[in-house]
Simulated scan of single mutants.
Amino acid sequence: MIEQLRTQLKTLALLDAIIEPEWAFRYFSFDSHWSDEEEVGSLRDGSGGQWFLWIKGDLAGYKCLSPDDGCMPDLEVVLRETPEAYQGFIREPAFSMDQATCIWFIQNSDCVRYGLPVQFLIDLETVSQWKAGDYLEWARNYYERDFDLGVIEKIFRGEFSTELAQTLNPQINLKDLQADLLEIGIT
Rank of each mutant, 00 (worst) to 15 (best):
M1A: 14
I2H: 05
E3Y: 13
Q4P: 02
L5V: 03
L5G: 05
L5N: 02
R6V: 14
T7P: 01
T7C: 07
L15H: 07
L15K: 02
I19G: 03
E20F: 03
E22M: 02
W23M: 11
A24R: 14
Y27S: 05
Y27N: 08
S29N: 08
S29A: 07
F30S: 05
D31M: 10
S32V: 04
D36M: 10
E37C: 08
V40C: 11
S42G: 12
L43C: 07
R44V: 11
S47H: 15
S47T: 11
G49T: 03
G49K: 00
Q50C: 00
F52T: 01
W54Q: 14
K56E: 06
G57L: 09
L59R: 03
L59D: 02
A60S: 11
A60E: 04
A60L: 10
G61C: 14
Y62M: 04
C64R: 05
C64H: 07
C64F: 04
S66G: 14
D68C: 01
D68E: 13
D68Q: 10
G70Y: 06
C71N: 08
M72L: 00
D74Y: 08
D74C: 07
E76W: 10
V77N: 11
L79N: 06
T82A: 12
Q87Y: 01
I90Q: 06
R91K: 08
R91F: 06
R91G: 02
E92D: 15
E92A: 12
A94S: 10
F95S: 01
M97P: 10
D98M: 05
T101H: 01
T101S: 06
C102M: 10
C102R: 02
I103D: 00
W104V: 06
I106R: 15
N108G: 14
N108Q: 15
V112T: 05
R113K: 13
R113I: 08
R113G: 04
L116N: 10
P117Y: 12
V118F: 05
Q119H: 15
Q119E: 15
Q119K: 15
F120Q: 08
F120A: 05
L121G: 07
I122L: 12
L124V: 11
L124H: 03
E125P: 09
E125W: 13
V127D: 09
S128C: 15
Q129A: 13
Q129D: 12
W130K: 03
K131V: 07
A132E: 06
A132L: 13
G133V: 09
E137H: 14
W138G: 04
A139Y: 00
R140W: 04
R140L: 04
R140I: 07
N141C: 05
R145G: 08
R145N: 11
D146T: 15
D146R: 15
D148Q: 09
L149A: 04
V151C: 11
E153H: 06
E153T: 07
K154L: 12
K154I: 04
K154H: 08
I155Y: 06
F156T: 05
R157S: 14
R157C: 13
G158M: 11
S161F: 00
E163Y: 09
A165R: 03
L168K: 07
N169K: 06
Q171M: 09
K175P: 02
D176G: 01
D176C: 01
Q178D: 13
Q178M: 10
D180H: 14
L181R: 14
I184D: 00
I184T: 04
T187C: 09
